[in-house]
Design a protein around this nucleic acid. Structure first.
Lengths: 343, 343
DNA sequence: ATGAAAGCGCTAACAA
DNA sequence: TTGTTAGCGCTTTCAT
């Protein structure tokens, strides 16, 4: 489709027809005779004609492509989500353009503006860990760009949202730890202001409350970069382990947090679960092979991707402005393994 | 950029100028007076004007976007490559569109044709494990679409290529196993016809030859889907372990192969490295946390992505047809851990 | 049943 | 210095 790019005009010239006749013939218009249709179609096929999608986009004012912004592709949770997104988008003839924020607000703003100016028809986004200001999204949304939030949502913007039942996931994991005899459970969370962080913390607190365990602020640490930086996890754990009354278990509330937590413990020769138990959110398919096999809260990533995409396409293809928005909450799954077993 | 989409025409009308003057003013043309430029620019900024990239693409006959086809995003090796690709492309103002073949030939052909018809300016591709027929790529290449192959390359198509020194990587790992006293080293490879499979097998053979260990065909197994399917790995290992003389070590020649191999061994209660040693290609950042920590051949994924993208952009932006092609071979790194230590 | 022409947003050759 | 116009590839009235 590069150098010689066949156009409708070429076909018209070769066949001694007008471009409009060719166009109509190709689209099977009723006003074109069967003979002409056949002639045009066969010739088009023979020279491998492909309509130029850019010209089409210009005309139709839509690009049939959707943008996806996530913090990291190299994170199982997000790559699984992307698989879900693709599975739907592709079938519907939509292209998927992916951008990573690497948890940087600045980068996210750039990504989003780049995408918007690239004429995407809609946006799927899970905001970066640094994002506290949502103007860039608010503006686009106000301008009419269909947006669906997933995972890390923006509560203030009225549109479809898809999340995991984070509170329930954290709750189940915490209760599980409690039931296994752990009492001083530390909570390692991502950036404080993120919705997912708050929800997971809430689930943790509720589980404690149910067992009448007092909530101890000193057991809660936050890593602003969601565990991306090994040293922030290190700092948090250093602090936790320096506590007069050390925790006997850790609930890590994000993928990187969980694995980097394990990394820290291994490096420091701390046995899991003997010295300290560990459970955490993770979607990696290697968690069962870790040392020890990790108890994880697994999110329905593929489903999140599918669901968000379905919603977005619905928004994009809506005839009239949509005013009713759904917030789909999908269940998390607690997978119990050795890292959190009985004291 | 949706509903109200400001165009140059709007600006022209509002300011009582012609569209061409506006266009030139925005692009800082020397033929426009400073006053007019200022006027236009300020007004454009005030109403948040953004040039329509689709119209630009149509005119310039380029989309400033490149296509990437890999088998799986959820594979660390490829997600790291994509990070490398993005790091370059983004800076140069190129968009990256990613597609996954999921190791299916059919899907790859679809992906590629979809991308080509989407008017990408160039293609970065690592072919699927099923791909033995390269017509779909050959055709595009012949038509003038710039293509750069990485990792799983197509030798017959003359263009830039970037790979890891697969033979050297496999060689180093095999030698390491030999030096640690292992003598019956099995080789678990991906699809036989793939270049990477052959190269890695070659490195393995050479290392054996250097130590005068006879090459034993029965110790070599291939998994056509590159380890994606757990059961193909299972079948291969079942066969290996049923051998009259069992292997005492395994060299797995692909990411999924390595981890699924470990999965199999763990499931079957086979101790690593006591019962059997394991080393393999992997780029996961969790390999050091596995049970046991895995000895891996790590590919310079980020660099592969960078390098391939630089080459592609060079091809895209070349003034004259490029006739000299480079094949960049980057070194792999052997990371020695417990899974392959002394017998 | 087919063709001519306008227009999507933008740039650039040509005029003025 | 600014305006007019044509054209990128395609669809779609409006003529014929």
């Amino acid at each position: 489709m590069k150098f010689e790019a066949v156009t409708i005009k070429d076909i018209a010239k070769a066949l001694g027809l007008s471009t409009s006749t060719v166009s109509r013939a190709l689209r099977d218009s009723y006003e074109i005779s069967e003979d002409t249709k056949k002639l045009v179609k066969e010739y088009a096929a023979s020279i491998n004609y492909r309509p130029n999608p850019i010209a089409l986009s210009l005309k139709e004012k839509r690009s049939r492509s959707i943008g996806v912004v996530v913090c990291e592709i190299a994170n199982s949770f997000f790559s699984q989500i992307i698989n879900g997104i693709e599975s739907i988008a592709y079938d519907q003839g939509y292209n998927v353009t992916i951008s990573q924020s690497h948890e940087s607000f600045e980068r996210e703003v750039l990504d989003v503006s780049h995408m918007a100016s690239r004429s995407i028809d809609g946006l799927l986004i899970s905001v970066s860990a640094e994002t506290k200001n949502f103007e860039h999204l608010q503006k686009l949304h106000a301008q009419g760009l269909p947006i669906v939030f997933f995972d890390r949502i923006v509560p203030d913007i009225e549109t479809h949202k898809v999340t995991t039942d984070n509170a329930a996931g954290a709750h189940a994991a915490t209760r599980h730890l409690l039931e296994n005899g752990y009492r001083r459970i530390a909570h390692l969370g991502a950036a404080e202001y993120m919705t997912i962080t708050q929800e997971r913390l809430r689930g943790y607190k509720n589980a404690l409350a149910e067992k009448q365990i007092p909530f101890d602020t000193s057991l809660v640490k936050h890593c602003t970069h969601g565990g991306m930086l090994e040293k922030e996890v290190q700092a948090a754990l250093d602090a936790l382990l320096a506590l007069p009354e050390k925790p006997d278990a850790i609930l890590a509330a994000a993928d990187k947090l969980t694995t980097n937590c394990l990394r820290y413990l291994q490096k420091n020769g701390i046995k899991v679960p003997d010295d300290i138990a560990l459970a955490g959110f993770s979607n990696s398919d290697l968690t069962e092979l870790l040392h020890p096999p990790l108890t994880v809260v697994k999110q329905p990533a593929f489903e999140i991707g599918r669901s968000a995409t379905e919603m977005l396409l619905q928004l994009i293809e809506a005839r009239r402005p949509v005013t009713e928005f759904a917030h789909t909450v999908l269940p998390a799954e607690l997978v119990i393994r050795e890292s959190s077993l009985k004291k």
